[in-house]
Amino acid sequence: MTAAERPVPYSTAPRERRTAARGGMLLTFVALAALPVVSGQNGYVLQVYTQTLLLASLALAWNVLGISGAVSLGHAAFFGTGAYVSALLSTIQDLSVWITIPLAGVFAAALGMLAGLICMRLRGAYFALATLAFVEIPRVITTNWDNVTQGSLGLVGLPGLPVLHWGDWRLDMAASSTAAYYFVFAYAVMVLCIVGIIQRSSFGLAFQALREEETAALSIGIPVSALRLLALSASAFFAGICGACYAHLVRYIEPGLVYGLYFSAIPMVLAICGGRFTILGPALAALVIYPLDQFVFHPLLPAGHEFLYGLALVLTVLFFPKGFWGYFGRTS
């Protein structure tokens, strides 16, 4: 299939606006790639941006389900499961983090499949509420499985990110914040590319059709439930890997943290602010909002800085209903 033949989603944004958006996108990529050099390898700045890119990946993962029209309020279930699976396998089973991180994704995808089978008959707000309740299942199990998970005490001293070898060359990503930054950057770019491929593929067209009009989608043969299940599992897979990366970056996890509302709400807020049905929107929202929170709002309002997320959501709904990137780029 040539580029010209590929299904291109309909866009309402004027051509000039889209050209400006593409330029901005390229500049952002270059700026992010050069950040460690530009920031003089400042540990704090790199830490914030590593977290930013992790949240961007989580928001992109959330949006793999989002493009099918479903809203999840429970992605912490997959994030937390990924974090715990990788943490436990790397500590108890002593497996390499290179293996435990993808395995975390697989476990999270299986949980996503289970959640899908339970909740797939529900639609709209009912589905969203069911996902919110679903988070409690892995959280309660983790909290009460004391002898393995240490319960609410959490797991401390987890192995850091893996060491890269290439002949004599060796890069310890646990010791170098620059290396950790590039590791998460690479993951975010990978998720972005996969989301882009899905959105621009025939499946993207099917997802768009089923979120626009489900009854008609069924009538033209689109297997709506199977596609939603696939989207939820894929979304959970990437969210699980985000959780695993988080566990090995922070090296400490506890149920209240990784299964908390924060990791359910943040990807949703970022995806809505950036543009739910766009490819880049959720990642761009993370790049704007999280550093703004950490560098500006947190020092000013240490106790209530998270109101920024609520403010961003309200402003988006009022002024950019299709999200920030929906205004500049592709709306579908």
Binding site: Y10, A206, Q208, A209, E212, E213, S219, I220, T331, S332
Partner: peptide, 19 residues
């Protein structure tokens, strides 16, 4: 019950995916 946000052409293409 058309896919209102999609172009007329994409509405037809979507029907050729799983028919």
């Amino acid at each position: 019950r058309l896919f209102a946000g999609m172009s007329a052409s994409d509405n037809i293409l979507a029907a050729r995916l799983f028919g």
